[in-house]
Simulated assay, not measured.
Amino acid sequence: MKRGLSSGGRKVLRWDSGLEIRLDTLWAALLLATVGLGFSGLAISVGATRTGLLDFVGLLSGDTLDENQIFALLDVRLPRLVLGFMAGWCVALTGAMLQSLSQNPLADPGLLGLSQGAMVTILLLLVLAPEAPISLVPLAAILGGLGVAVLLIWLTGGGQSDGLAILLMGIAVETVLSSVTSIMILYLPPETSFAVSDWLAGSLFQASWGNIAALAPWVALSLPAILLLGRALSCYDLGAEMAMSLGEPAARSKPLILFTSVLLTSAAVTAVGPLAFLGVMAPHLANALTPTTGRARLVLSGLTGGVLVIGADALTRGFAGDIAIPIGLALTLLGVPLFIISMRLRAAFAPQRN
């Protein structure tokens, strides 16, 4: 491993295999990891039971705690923390993929209808087959998301259309599916409608090790997806015409990116419900730390999404006390102001960069 300069003049670490990692990307990842650990310590310490990070460290080292403390740490707070990070990682990663694919900074799983497709099929399963095994819920979500993805590919000519066409078709499909969801909620029994509305706001209330085990394979799938799709996405960041001139097979890579986005989105929706605006917000905040493309952008976006979820959950639980705020609303309340501030700072310093 040697230090050197990239073609753009940035400091990099270069391996004999040809792999290069920019130093500013490593520093950004380290910053996100540090902030995430800080929020994790806060999340472990917030709750009705008096226990916290020191007790958790002591438990790992063999100290004895009472049953209430062990339950609060291992069965409530830690699963909530892990599940929140994993779901945030999946949604933010999907948002970064879709923004590069469509060449639109506003693209995310919700805007393209992938989240709505998963939600509608889950609702249909719960309404039409309430006695169905719980194991069918992830399958229903994947089928709904895949249905939307196939429809988008068909409507845009098998992936040959530009990113704007995919985005506009996605908005149209998402609008129709949102109407279907609203109609179903309106005519469901009151108790079912309330439970569904709570889930649609994004929720970590049902976090458990079982939910983590169900989501873990999809998070693991995202790692090879980053390696395989990173080059294609860096090409699409340059524009559709430039990507094709570089030899990128759009007819194959676009459906593959959409398919991967469906799997990650469906898994996250099944675990915690939709996380509105996170897919838009996290990639832009990661880009505010350091502008990147390809694999580096995907990794930083995923880390940012996970940190935002656990940070929003920990802070709202700390300030709201006994008031239970769904994670989707917490992200909106705390993440959007941070997003606005970062955009204003970028706009203020943009003339100096020129």
Rank of each mutant, 00 (worst) to 15 (best):
F194A: 12
F194R: 02
A195G: 12
A195D: 13
A195F: 12
A195I: 11
A195Q: 13
S197N: 13
S197W: 04
S197V: 08
S197F: 12
S197Q: 14
D198P: 00
W199K: 06
W199N: 04
W199I: 05
W199F: 15
L200S: 01
L200I: 07
L200W: 09
L200N: 00
A201S: 14
A201H: 09
G202N: 11
G202R: 07
S203G: 10
S203R: 13
L204K: 02
Q206L: 14
Q206G: 15
S208G: 13
G210T: 07
G210M: 03
I212Q: 03
A213M: 11
A213R: 13
A214P: 02
L215K: 01
L215N: 00
L215H: 03
L215D: 00
L215M: 11
A216G: 05
A216R: 00
A216F: 15
A216E: 02
A216D: 01
A216M: 14
P217L: 05
P217M: 04
P217Q: 00
P217I: 01
W218L: 10
V219G: 06
V219F: 12
V219Y: 09
V219S: 05
A220W: 04
A220C: 11
A220L: 15
L221N: 02
L221G: 03
L221A: 13
L221C: 06
S222D: 11
S222W: 08
S222E: 09
L223S: 01
L223F: 10
P224W: 05
A225N: 05
A225L: 15
I226G: 11
I226M: 15
I226S: 09
L227R: 00
L227C: 10
L228E: 08
L228D: 07
L228S: 07
L228P: 04
L228F: 15
L228H: 05
L229F: 14
L229T: 03
G230K: 03
G230Q: 05
G230W: 08
G230P: 11
R231N: 12
R231V: 09
A232R: 06
L233F: 10
L233G: 07
S234F: 06
C235M: 11
Y236C: 12
D237R: 03
D237G: 07
L238H: 06
L238F: 11
L238G: 11
G239K: 03
G239H: 06
G239N: 04
A240P: 06
E241C: 04
E241Y: 08
E241V: 09
M242I: 12
M242C: 08
M242S: 14
A243Q: 01
A243R: 01
A243K: 00
M244Y: 04
M244G: 07
M244H: 09
M244P: 00
M244I: 03
S245K: 01
L246D: 08
G247T: 03
G247I: 04
G247R: 03
E248L: 15
E248G: 02
E248Q: 13
E248R: 02
P249K: 00
A250E: 08
A250H: 15
A251M: 12
A251S: 14
A251P: 07
R252C: 07
R252F: 15
